[in-house]
Design a protein around this nucleic acid. Structure first.
Lengths: 231, 231
DNA sequence: GAACGGCGTTAAGAAGGCGTTAGGAATCCA
DNA sequence: TGGATTCCTAACGCCTTCTTAACGCCGTTC
């Protein structure tokens, strides 16, 4: 196996399925990497940056869709879902949170390999996988969930981090109160604009040089907030 | 249906299937284009440059794989194959000559639409630039909710912004007092023409070079206001 | 030439949105 | 089970924004 061989990460808890796929993938000329749980899968994705990810939705420790969402926060690596669930809503849900294909068990190895080739074809050739967002003295490593301000690591709570990355994802444009509440608090009933005020204040204190005169985390009165990018 | 709606080309010889898919696609908000033969399909693809192509492999006049090959000589438009043939070799063949996905009949419309969304997502990873409205030294990015005058960002309050964008939307044409009040103040009782005078003055101060002699934000006495476009 | 109506301008009060702080509840981890 | 972290909630004061009124300018009309 040459070191240039493309690498496939398989996230699957059933040992039998892992064995089967390992043979198929190595037979197809790919380097092979496996994880038996969602947590391990995410870690390996961060560590090895595989070229394709095969993901079983029925994992023991976390929901497959959550894993997709977490992954898509920083990576556009093609994901092919392989699942025993053939219900249409499962497929739609997975595809809409960022999966690139959905294969229902059982399937043939030939088709799997062909769909992997399609996924590789789609992978943005020019785009160097760069999960780094930088702005002023800030450096955010989306893959490691690490935020540095002037080289110093700053700890953000889960909600602070989600609010921050939501603004990053829409950098430069206004994000409305409604949209922020939906994306950060997940459409939970009772999410109030008051939350945003509190958490924006906390973010400013942790990230801005002069929290009372924010340079990047800007308020758009009556509308929402915006992460200002300099141009 | 807005003229910006994405367009789907369906190449399918069975009338019954065409009817079914037409309903599904138009229900999904796409513009719809159909061809009953491979020859016609290629011609329409050249002519209309659809955003996605749905291709049935079982065509009367030419083999679906040949069509794929011919198409890929000049176009990378995403192609989703829909076929009654579920044999693995068919799938592999289609995917390897350039198809982006392969759906076996019968399938649900929800899944089809989800796979179309995936195909569209793949189509342009190169970020699309925001549509800009420019006029003189003004540059308005509606998506970012940002207004630049001579390169300098200018802050507008919610009402100012709504008034301004309403005029932009009808650029060049007169917008009556009544219409402006309705679109900006939302039909709230008590909205007076006085409001317009106040807010037009504020807009002129923020945007015009000589607010007392406005170049673009013009008054149409007794009727309304107009955003003058030059030419 | 004086009265009138439409418009622009300015300013001030009112209303609502926003930032800030802190304390208690809930959750997580050891 | 205990401690620490994180989240929710309320209270308060400030600041932006909206509304409203007053006044001056200009052109038209009688």
């Amino acid at each position: 196996m040459t070191p240039e061989a493309l690498q496939v990460l398989l996230v699957e808890d059933e040992p039998q399925m892992r064995r089967f796929l390992r043979v198929a993938l190595e037979g197809g000329g790919y380097r092979y990497l496996e994880a038996a749980s969602g947590r391990e899968g995410l870690a390996l994705a961060v560590q090895h940056r595989p070229d394709v990810i095969l993901l079983d939705l029925g994992l023991p420790d976390m929901d497959g869709l959550d894993l997709m969402t977490r992954l898509r926060e920083w990576s556009r690596t093609p994901v092919i879902v392989i699942s025993a669930r053939g219900r249409e809503t499962d497929k739609i849900g997975a595809l809409d949170v960022g999966a690139d294909d959905y294969l229902t068990k059982p399937f043939g190895t030939g088709e799997l390999l062909a769909r992997i080739r399609v996924a590789l074809r789609h992978a943005d050739p020019g785009a160097v996988e760069d999960p780094l967002f930088t702005l002023g003295r800030w450096r955010v490593d989306l893959a490691r969930r690490q935020v540095l301000v002037a080289g110093q690591e700053v700890h953000l709570t889960p909600l602070e981090y989600r609010l921050f990355t939501t603004l990053i994802r829409h950098a430069g444009r206004v994000v409305t109160h409604r949209q922020l509440l939906k994306e950060v608090w997940g459409g939970v009933a009772g999410a109030q604009p008051l939350y945003l005020r509190v958490y924006m204040a906390q973010l400013r204190h942790k990230l801005e040089e002069d929290p009372s005169r924010p340079r990047y985390l800007q308020t758009e009165p009556g509308v929402g907030y915006r992460l200002r990018t300099e141009d």
